[in-house]
Amino acid sequence: MNPIAEYAIALLLLVGGFFTLVGAIGLARLPDFYTRLHGPTKATTVGVGAIVLSSVIYFSSKGQGVGVAEVLITVFLFLTAPVSANIMAKAAMHIGVPTTDSTRGNTWDQ
């Protein structure tokens, strides 16, 4: 296999794993629901995107063709992450999940 592709795959894998882990640490560590929402929507989406991209490079450098399923997975994750974050935030505000004391501003519910 071409060494540049090999470096790229290894780097993307490590970056992907790192961001996935950071998203999960954020989910476990941050103080309230609304701040926890930030970890998975950004870090985890990018992390999984990087891992899927490394899979695209891996299989195309092995001569198995460019994977369209991978591209669809990435596009789908990036399209759905904000929608699910938004709907979960709405549900949380409706139930009245409290914010941490350091939060300025108020939630609404209509």
Binding site: F18, F19, V22, I25, G26, R29, L30, P31, D32, Y34, T35, H38, G39, K42, A43, T45, V46, G47, F78, T99, T100, S102, T103, R104, G105, N106, T107
Partner: peptide, 25 residues
């Protein structure tokens, strides 16, 4: 911006300091 955003969120999460959240209309 998504890439920049993930790096800044990662830095905040790993730095261990408390975030300063705000709700904006």
């Amino acid at each position: 911006d998504i890439l920049v955003a993930s790096v800044s969120v990662a830095r905040l999460i790993l730095s261990g300091r408390e975030p300063k959240p705000i709700l904006v209309s």
